[in-house]
Amino acid sequence: MAGDINLNDLLRRYRTHPFEDYVVETPHTGRLQLKVEQGQEVKGPSGKWGQKPGTLLFVLERERNPKKVYSRNTGIISEVRTDLHEAFVEAREPVLTVQHRLNKEEIIDRILKEVLSIYAAPQRARYFLVPEIAAQIEKNIEKGVSIKKGDEILIMSLMKRDTILEYDGEPGVIYKVYFQSGQTVEQGQSLLGVCPPAKLQYVQKVVQRIRTEWDE
């Protein structure tokens, strides 16, 4: 079957290095106050709706507005630029790295990327889901949203122009959205993971296997 993968290999690979690094940058310019240290454990957002912010990483004050930047991931601070403490920092400056240990669900996500049909970014551009799809996804988190060839699915914002992208892959259910609305995505990066109905069983089998075989 097309798209079949060597699950054992993949699992072995993740077992030897079950980490992913998240580099936290300054969202904009400002004076920086570090709030964490090298080696410190940090938490991601929590609460049923993710309403409780994670660990405070740093405060960035610009135009007398001290903005708190919280960790989006749980992990260990593996690198931190202490030289930036109390300095004026430019926008998009890497401040620290959170080494995050992948949990079971994330492993599943990553392996699924190899199983699902991936709709990749045709251009380096900013992407948005079309409002209808976005609303449907928000409503049917459990069931998923079905799409077929020719459906308008994404808005690609490029050169000040918005282009509506039509889906051109196998029909299926949107299993996963890999980007945040309005995020700039590099060409070729995954935007959507779509699962064709015929493959659904296989995907579930893969998920099931990882669930049983992956020990945290």
Binding site: H28, T29, E90, A91, R92
Partner: peptide, 11 residues
């Protein structure tokens, strides 16, 4: 200076 956006007056 690198800024996030030319359209952000705060920058």
């Amino acid at each position: 200076f690198r800024i996030s956006n030319y359209k952000d007056p705060n920058e």
